[in-house]
Design a protein around this nucleic acid. Structure first.
Lengths: 236, 236
DNA sequence: GTCTATAACACGATAGAC
DNA sequence: GTCTATCGTGTTATAGAC
């Protein structure tokens, strides 16, 4: 762990000295791609845009990733994994703070899901700023890169949060909870889209609803989620 | 076509006889573009894809629309206008059925918004099947075509439904209602995306939640909307 | 690993015959 | 109003020098 263990690779990587100190080409490419995808989409960015932004030559993507599509896959995974770890950690921590036989609080559970997403989506300096847009793209224009990657990154989140909501809402059947969870994800992604392009809601409400007040958006959405989840199942 | 009637070319459109019986080129282009955009996005479809699907020659889009972007605008408007007319008509009709000084029912108002969208999104034979995807694209990748067109088509819907929800929820401030309305739009668009590509919710719930049962999806979402709208404002 | 150069093709737009 | 042909530019991917 401390010494040689990590260097053994096909051709010996970087002699274990500087990791991301001055960012090697591959890392720069990933960062540049992330930033560009977040503002122009995937089809809207060419490999040349990326390599020139990363100050690499135009063949670098082919060399390091094989294809543009593989690059997209790596970018997406690199964004989704830490975001979901944050969510799951927050949920774990909250669950640990509640007695084992007690009900969970719906809003607290919802907050574990919502806050990390909106917090990073609203921060242009945060890498995960791009993530919600990639997720919306994955939903709207499923390209080849979507396959498996979405499932790998999100199935665990789904299962953990469905369990938590079930524990918060013991009287509600699982099917209803799954529907509402998914609807909530839609609201969350949509709200994340406030933070690129001009947001419609600010214009149409003449600034009364201002996405820039992130804390308020989070509170509003958490409350929205609470009300939606809490109401009784359909009697039909 | 038996004689000379169809040969008149210079000006003089179609001599007012057959309108869309055998679909002139311009109409065929719009239909082909709608279908293609709905499955491959806008950047994913070339003008040549459209003209060949419409069995027109490759210069037809330039001639009839001037540019690809104008075509996109026309496609979007042609889809959004009737959809929103349906929604507004449904709302008008419901409002007319309620005494002037009475409260409106939240679920009924929500249903006017939700049902037309999901009903057409889930029907592949319906032109507006493509609309929700274009709307998601407009949110994710705002291209030049978005400008003004979104506002023209949706501002009235926003204002009318905000008023209706306000009448249904007199104790709630307008700002909160606007937030919740917008979150609800996110859920609705996301739910519409069930109907292209493979839907995640069916897989992950092992078929327990099946988008193919459109009536159920509508009921679930209407109920979700009711619960979310109804709960009290944030006390803070 | 980095670079130049280019292959091989797709794009939107348009000119001009019919 | 429809067609062919093509212009100019863009794309991804790759071959080969260093």
């Amino acid at each position: 762990m401390t010494s040689v263990a990590e260097t053994g690779k096909g051709t010996r990587k970087k002699s274990a000295s500087k990791m991301a100190v001055d960012a090697d080409t591959k890392t720069r490419l990933i960062h540049a791609a992330t930033a560009l995808f977040s503002t122009k989409g995937i089809d809207g960015v060419s490999t040349r845009d990326i390599t020139s932004a990363a100050k690499a030559n135009s063949a670098a993507i082919g060399y390091h990733f094989g294809s543009k599509d593989n690059l997209v896959r790596e970018v997406f995974s690199a964004l989704a994994a830490p975001m979901n770890r944050t969510r799951l950690d927050a949920l774990t921590q909250y669950e640990a703070s509640v007695p084992a036989d007690a009900q969970l609080d719906i809003e607290q559970v919802a907050r574990c899901l919502i806050e990390p997403a909106l917090r990073s989506a609203s921060d242009p300096g945060h890498d995960a700023h791009a993530l919600s847009r990639l997720l919306l793209l994955a939903r709207t224009l499923p390209g080849p890169w979507v396959t498996n990657v979405l499932a790998e990154q999100y199935d665990e989140v789904f299962n953990r949060f469905i369990s938590a909501f079930s524990r918060a809402l013991p009287e509600l059947d699982r099917e209803t909870i799954c529907w509402r969870y998914d609807f909530l994800v839609g609201s969350l992604l949509y709200a994340s889209s406030y933070y690129y392009g001009q947001s419609r809601i600010a214009r149409i409400t003449e600034g009364k609803c201002d996405p820039a007040d992130v804390d308020n958006v989070i509170d509003q959405l958490v409350h929205f989620a609470g009300g939606a989840m809490r109401c009784g199942a359909i009697g039909r």
